[in-house]
Amino acid sequence: MLKANNLRKTFSPGTVNEKFALNGVSLQLAERDFITVIGGNGAGKSTLLNAIAGVFPIDSGDIFIDSKDVTKYPEHKRSQFIGRVFQDPIMGTASSMTIEENLAMAHRRGKPRGLGWGITNDERALFIDHLKILGLGLENRLTSKTGLLSGGQRQALTLLMATILKPRLLLLDEHTAALDPKTAQTVLDLTERIISENQLTVIMVTHNMKDALKTGNRIAMMHEGDIILDIGSDEKKSLHVSDLLEMFEKASGDQISSDRMLLS
């Protein structure tokens, strides 16, 4: 359902800061694929997700979603297909707007906005049902500003916002990395649950190799702006973190540079 061919992106081209962030990376996802993406700092993982979401125009390559060429679509137009959760909890919500207002905006993702009410009573009831499932008590705080929520609560809310209208593609960029281990686990469990209940197609970037192995049906490794390994579900099941490290070194000819990856 997703086809990204030969994506290239150079930041600050022609300057001393020139950075080849994506070097002809290609990625194909089938319906219901759940691919985890690992790789060292600066490997280009976030850039890949941003390129797919249309945050910036890419230099070359093309992107198809459901065999529709979206390469030239600006970000707000691609949003009809894509739900996102970011690493930084602050990025996922409008912090001076309330929980229900944020959800209402998410509930209109990719749709034209008019002069109708920003939220309806039916929606409120729907949001309460969904918030109850999160099990964080947020259903009683519909009119609290999201700036008052903890990082874990915000990530759970952002996850709900990204999926309340079923997205064709869900992009998760280290969405548990800023949380303490226990909260991270809670949010990850929630993520898996929402994904399987909604049968979503997902790209999840993570620094946690165990999570990367445990979740999803595919695993990809990025290095210097390209995917150097893409392992399918059969092989993935039998892998351990140590195998993964070994494969990475062989494929990249490099030691794993990220301490965060080793630690986790």
Partner: peptide, 11 residues
């Protein structure tokens, strides 16, 4: 409030 977020929501 959060320009990136609302753009990702289609505005």
């Amino acid at each position: 409030n959060n320009e990136n977020m609302i753009r990702a929501l289609g505005v």
